[in-house]
Design a protein around this nucleic acid. Structure first.
Lengths: 126, 126
DNA sequence: TACTCTATTGATAACGAATATCATTAGCAC
DNA sequence: GTGCTAATGATATTCGTTATCAATAGAGTA
């Protein structure tokens, strides 16, 4: 049976207060900095749970997993390589394309990774 | 100055003889199995070089980098979650969409990660 | 409320991929 | 051949993540 603990709530809340994507490690550090006694392993577990339930989405960058509170439904990201700013983007056309291309080759249960990296306007200026 | 060594050639050749994506570790193991005395660090360096020169493409899966000899130009992949079979897919529509969406938000130098994971026909059957 | 059961926690050890170190080796220009 | 130095490779190290396991604390039940 699933139990509700203050630790899970703390992780979800902390994630919602973050501006962009954060790693499990840095989320743990900021929770500790805020006076919490939560353990690192628990942060990893809570984030994995949130991601599994669709309440957070994640992406891989430079060998580590970054998480972000999931605001609504399925979407993708436009991420600044330099400052980490992220923009959520809807891409219905790409969703359909992914399904079509999977079906075309006999693949089932398609999931896709679609992220666009670049330099945001302010980082481009520099 | 760049020097040509038999180690780099061995890595490129081994990569070309692989069917799908392989990790640096497994490529090193198979090279060693074939009688080579190449070092693990060298395999990592050679793969990074190949990827940087566009002669190999890579993707992240479960926290490790996988490499594959790059046959031609830019493309994406349809990958079986179960057996690792990969199919190269062209997606001009997605390329254009990525550029358009990046430009729309003021992003420059867009690069994108577009991979579709699923279960291939034979794995679906089981 | 007291009791029981067991999911969850957290300190820490363990693991694994990738990188750094550095003495040795071997391309390549001359 | 000689000299310079990029490249190699055994190994140590770093770092993100997961496993271990005793202790803790939800959540039903009496």
């Amino acid at each position: 049976m699933k139990r509700n603990t203050w630790q899970r709530d703390a992780v979800r809340e902390a994630l919602e207060h973050e501006a962009g994507f954060v790693s499990a490690q840095s989320l743990h550090t900021s929770l500790r900095g805020g006076g919490s006694s939560i353990g690192l392993a628990t942060v990893y577990r809570a984030l994995a749970d949130l991601a599994a339930k669709g309440q957070a989405d994640s992406l891989q960058q430079e060998g580590e997993s970054l998480y972000r509170a999931c605001t609504s439904g399925h979407h993708h990201h436009l991420i600044c390589r330099n400052c980490g700013t992220t923009v959520e983007i809807k891409a219905d056309a790409v969703e359909q394309w992914a399904h079509a291309v999977a079906a075309e080759h006999g693949f089932t249960r398609p999931e896709h990774v679609v992220d666009v990296f670049g330099l945001c306007a302010s980082c481009s200026a520099r």
